[in-house]
């Protein structure tokens, strides 16, 4: 079975690096994007199995990215985990409607992120 492909979008390069390394070490294939626009393009071309995105990004916020992905049948099924430093300010309806499976607030634990990734992929497989 081929490794699952995960797209990670964050404008903070440190976060991008740490998440990528954690996921790669766990055997996942990782593609990275440093803003929403780039992530949208990669989602269409790379067909990832999962998206991990930051909420607060230049050009396009994580929520806008999710809404755009949801509108396109080719990407509508990609489960998403959203990282945010202000999760409490996001409307739950918005995140639910945009197909966000889990919210993880920053500062976060890479260990916890990895277990969440495993969980979400399991759920998607069922």
């Amino acid at each position: 079975m081929a490794a699952k492909k995960i797209l990670v979008a964050d404008d903070e390069s440190h976060i991008l690096n740490v998440v990528s390394l954690k996921l790669r070490n766990a055997g996942y294939e990782v593609v990275t994007a440093s803003d929403g626009q780039e992530a949208l393009e990669l989602a269409l071309s790379e067909h990832p199995d999962l998206l991990i995105t930051d909420y607060h990004m230049p050009q396009m916020s994580g929520l806008e990215l999710c809404q755009k992905l949801k509108q396109d049948p080719a990407t509508a099924k990609i489960p998403t985990i959203m990282l945010t430093a202000r999760g409490y300010q996001l409307d739950e309806r918005d995140t639910e409607q945009s197909g966000v499976a889990r919210m993880i607030s920053k500062p976060f634990s890479p260990r916890h992120l990895l277990s969440t990734v495993n969980e979400v992929l399991m759920e998607a497989a069922v």
Binding site: I15, V18, R111
Partner: peptide, 12 residues
């Protein structure tokens, strides 16, 4: 933001 990096890298 910096705290998130510090925490994640230390855990790694």
């Amino acid at each position: 933001t910096p705290l998130a990096s510090i925490k994640a890298y230390v855990e790694m």
